[in-house]
């Protein structure tokens, strides 16, 4: 296991017309490969902001964010995009699948910008990933023909398309029932066991059964709850 993320004294605030809201204050946290992390907290606590910053789709006001040993502060937009493409896989609550594309085609989308994956291997790779999440018989289906749980599994396969080192999931089970929630957490656990760093932001207490480390965010501060 190796440390891939190191966040030091990271802060972020929003300024509204009336007041300044400190959404994250002096956050210090580290993440390693091969572990399943859960970040919990109430709505508006800043957990989604943190995962967005970790996934390089949001910025921060102060502090340091070292990713794979490199300070991301001075990186250009193109460099950040390249890191996202190669090393980060996103899973969102709303799935965000392209409805005009079949399940396997949705998984191929991130591969289109990765020159390391040859064109002829794309479909085979997408099918393998869909098989891994238990959708081998749903590859030719469009998102509208799939249940919520199945759609989220397609989104997980898509997140894994470029074989990233870490998976960031923002409320991945927020729109799912208990049965599907369990399936998704099981898959994410398996992914972490394969050596990837999985960070999940969730409200669900069931995540405790799967997470190796749980962080709680409250009033913009992060507290490590326990290590399993």
């Amino acid at each position: 296991m190796s440390k891939i993320i190191s966040v030091n004294h990271l802060s972020k605030s929003y300024i509204t017309e009336k007041k300044r809201i400190d959404i994250l204050q002096e956050i210090n946290v580290e993440f390693e490969t091969g572990k399943f992390y859960a970040i919990m907290g109430h709505s508006g606590s800043g957990k989604s902001t943190l995962i967005n910053i970790l996934g390089l789709i949001d910025n921060f006001d102060s502090g340091k964010y070292i990713l794979f040993g490199k300070d991301i502060t001075a990186m250009t937009d193109n460099e950040l995009s390249k890191i996202r493409m190669k090393n980060i896989g996103f899973i969102f609550q709303e799935f965000y699948l392209n409805n005009t594309l079949k399940a396997w085609e949705n998984v191929v989308v991130p591969m289109l910008i990765n020159d390391e994956i040859p064109k002829k291997e794309r479909k085979e790779r997408a099918c393998k990933l869909l098989k891994m999440v238990g959708l081998e018989d749903r590859m030719e289906h469009y998102p509208k023909e799939l249940s919520g749980g199945e759609q989220q599994r397609v989104a997980i396969a898509r997140a894994l398309a470029n074989n990233p080192k870490m998976i960031l999931a923002d409320e991945p089970t927020g729109n799912l029932d208990e049965e599907h929630e369990e399936q998704i957490f099981n898959i994410l656990k398996e992914i972490s066991k394969s050596g990837k760093c999985v960070i999940v932001v969730t409200h669900s207490n069931d995540v405790k059964k799967y997470a190796d480390i749980i962080y709680k965010i409250s009033n913009g501060k992060i507290v490590r709850q326990d290590e399993i």
Binding site: G55, I57, D77, N78, S81, K82, I83, R84, M85, K86, I88, F90, F92, Y96, N98, V109, P110, I113, N114, R158, N162
Partner: peptide, 16 residues
């Protein structure tokens, strides 16, 4: 727009 955001999160550059 939303799909563009998703593509950006997947690593697509603005140029892409």
């Amino acid at each position: 727009s939303q799909n563009i955001g998703v593509l950006r999160s997947l690593g697509y550059t603005k140029k892409d």
